[in-house]
Design a protein around this nucleic acid. Structure first.
Length: 335
DNA sequence: GCATGACCTCA
DNA sequence: GAGGTCATG
């Protein structure tokens, strides 16, 4: 994030972070001497970080460091969009929709990231007709071959996401095909070339200030970008909280859980059905429909199916209360 | 407006 | 077939 490597961990209500600078003198972390390789485990870094914080509190705090910390914290708040009150939104969505109310209880805290538009666009061009495990590998290869090296941690080298310029090079298609990108290799290079040659390097960022439909239409002019990818980029990097990416999965949710009839006679997702499903959910959930959609999408993922069998925190608390009562009764009986 | 096939690769 | 897109009919 922001051209640097971060490690994060979360306790009850605190997000702990550590930033690794690219400056070779600080490659093992700010204000630290070079440490040997064995010190580099992520867990240790978090422990160290707590210590570093304490140290800094005791000694006179460098003003520059203080301001840098404030900036980093602001970057994190921006990335996680902590200014958006999720609980209020969940309540709104749940009040409007009984099915969401149920699922939202189990899958609380699902929050949209505010990603970098370049990273978001070119990553999602890789997703067509593809599955997540493979996409992950492709994005990693994209970074390691075309991205700026950032730092080394636990013997792993980390690279930034490539710039548009790096992706636009004439040899890029062949290079990426060699790395197993298939037909997407040409889309990536072509889109990058089109942006640098006729839109300008800032074009994607300017779309953050455009209305949703305008930004989406702009993205649709790029090769390899259809309705679904355009909505993903709008929602996850261009501040369009109302964008609802419709894929076969979301189409299925709309029909199965909401009795949505749009395109029920058709075999494939047409442009028209895309828009109708999106409009359906926007009407139901309002201006943050894209965020609500991601909660249901998350709940439908295979890897989270087990969560549905575990009782929710609320139900668990109820159960504990009941158990305590039972114990009390038993104790009284014993007495 | 909608259906169909091609497109690359691999978990 | 997989969290699609594009060209064609």
């Amino acid at each position: 994030m922001g051209g640097r490597v971060w490690t994060l961990t979360q306790t009850d209500d605190t997000l702990w972070y550590y930033v690794y600078h690219r400056d070779p003198d600080h490659i093992n972390g700010r204000k630290r001497k070079k440490s040997n390789g064995s010190e580099n485990s992520v867990k240790k870094k978090f422990k160290e970080m707590a210590e570093v914080k304490e140290e800094e509190n005791e000694t006179s705090l460098n003003k520059t460091t203080f301001e840098e910390d404030a900036k980093d914290e602001e970057l994190l708040r921006d990335y996680f969009q902590l200014g958006v009150n999720l609980e209020d939104l969940y309540k709104k969505w749940g009040d409007a929709d009984a099915h969401f109310s149920h699922t939202g209880n189990i899958f609380s805290g699902v929050r949209m990231l505010r990603q970098d538009p370049v990273e978001c666009l070119f990553s999602f061009i890789c997703t067509s007709n593809n599955h997540i495990s493979r996409i992950q590998g492709m994005v990693e290869r994209l970074c390691s071959t075309l991205g700026t090296p950032l730092c080394k941690l636990d013997d792993a080298h980390y690279h930034d996401f490539p710039s548009i310029k790096a992706l636009a090079g004439s040899g890029v298609e062949a290079q990426l095909r060699g790395l197993g990108f298939g037909y997407r290799a040409r889309f990536l290079q072509q889109s990058a070339h089109l942006i640098t040659s006729s839109r300008g390097p800032n074009w994607l960022y300017t779309l953050r200030n455009a209305p949703y439909l305008e930004a989406k239409a702009a993205l649709l002019t790029l090769p390899g970008v259809g309705s679904k990818v355009a909505d993903c980029v709008c929602l996850m990097s261009l501040d369009k909280s109302e964008a609802v990416p419709v894929d076969t999965h979301v189409w299925q949710i709309a029909r199965r859980d909401y009795g949505c009839a749009s395109g029920s006679k058709q075999k494939t997702l047409t442009e028209k059905v895309h828009n109708e499903i999106g409009d359906f959910f926007r009407k139901l959930w309002g201006p943050y429909a894209g965020w609500a959609h991601s909660v249901l999408f998350c709940a439908d993922l295979k890897k989270f199916q087990k969560l549905k069998e575990i009782p929710t925190v609320k139900e668990e608390k109820k159960k504990v209360k009941v158990d305590k009562k039972k114990k009390k009764v038993k104790k009284q009986e014993a007495d």
